[in-house]
Design a protein around this nucleic acid. Structure first.
Lengths: 228, 228
DNA sequence: GGGTACACGTGACGC
DNA sequence: TGCGTCACGTGTACC
């Protein structure tokens, strides 16, 4: 009797076999072993009523299932402070709330990243106004796109050189994800010219030109919410 | 008696007040109301032993706390199929596993978006995120500063071309406020080289070289607080 | 009525 | 020592 009770103690605390929460009805050797002794040591001495006997075993099953679930819960949650039943549930709640919060954070981050990378597909994406920085516009003086054959397109852009013009032009061009083979920037006193060698077909040339012009226009637009 | 049991039924199923899992010891009016009748209807008829009486109320508290936690768990988990205790725990486990999986998915997605995004990030805009975006360091392969006479110094820098290397190099060079006459950037497959024509005296050459090296080093230093 | 789920009181164990 | 926790059997309500 003592030994059995002791085993029961350990049953919840350590020696729990049934970690698989999918099983509904398992064999549970320790409970089975105890069942007989429990019946025989029934306090009323007389024949145990067969009606309640069913209830007893059913109740045992229920308790065992619940403990099983509780143990499974414990195995999912990291950092369980106390092995107490109530504490296990409490820690699970805290952990779950933590997960939910983190999920929201991650989703927000993904939305932020997506709005940043889907620059040209969705030109008008919402952005935080307070984070907008104003810059000098890029003034294009001349732009020429020519197909060189062999999947090579050359783009020549000349713009007036102001403050940070080269950095800004770099940003815009990098945002387009063009297949750039070679780049060359040259700056003189008042002008900045760049020559891009792109890998593209002849029919893509006009599309490339349009993309660049659109991107520069978007970059210059003070109301444009895209962050470059 | 029947009514009381009925109330208990409803107690677990619907009328649960204590959703706050922080409270350890609450007043629990329904249990209190029942306590008296429970004592009087004790089956053994004789005076209930005062020793076990303490245990009874303690046990009641324990049960109530556990149900309280269980109810709180139920309120956190959406889509509980059955209000059964075991089912609540099972659904909680499933939901938690779902959250964990989704967390991994979202994190993977974020990592992919971050690595795929070739857009330039303004370091100021990312301050609200706990995850700081670190830029790729500028890896200088060769640097040469020569005096050409006539107050002209030529600086040649060659670095390995990584993501955004040119923009970053522009930022660093612009931050130095050099008296630049002409610049030329050329990028090939794996290298990016720039040639700067500066207006400077011969004796300034070494200072210019030191300034550029210092600026690049500062830019690469993740602990450097200078914003370029 | 059999089956299920629950709250209850009780004895035991450990800190 | 008491106090907290547990498994157990039981009575009962709901379907």
């Amino acid at each position: 009797m003592e030994d059995l009770d002791h085993e029961y103690k350990n049953y919840w605390e350590t020696t729990m076999f049934f970690q698989n929460q999918e099983l509904e009805f398992d064999s549970w050797p320790m409970e089975e072993a105890f069942s007989g002794s429990g019946e025989s040591s029934s306090p009323d001495g007389a024949a145990t009523s067969p009606a309640s006997s069913k209830n007893v075993v059913s109740e045992r099953n229920r308790r065992q299932k619940l403990n099983q679930r509780l143990f499974a819960l414990r195995s999912v949650v990291p950092n369980i402070s106390k092995l107490d039943k109530a504490s296990v549930i409490k820690d699970s709640i805290d952990y779950m709330q933590e997960l939910i919060d983190q999920e929201k954070t991650l989703e927000a981050e993904i939305r932020e990243l997506e709005s940043r990378s889907t620059l040209l597909e969705n030109p008008f994406k919402q952005m935080d106004y307070s984070t907008r920085v104003q810059h000098y516009p890029i003034e294009v003086l001349e732009m020429k796109v020519t197909w060189m054959g062999e999947k090579t397109v050359v783009v020549c852009i000349t713009c007036s050189k102001k403050r940070e013009t080269m950095v800004q032009l770099c940003k815009v061009l990098e945002s387009l994800n063009l297949n750039i083979l070679t780049t060359n920037f040259s700056s003189f006193t008042s002008r900045l010219s760049t020559t891009l060698f792109l890998q593209a077909d002849e029919e893509e040339s006009s599309a490339v030109e349009a993309k660049i012009q659109m991107a520069i226009a978007a970059y210059n637009d003070p109301n444009c919410l895209i962050n470059f």
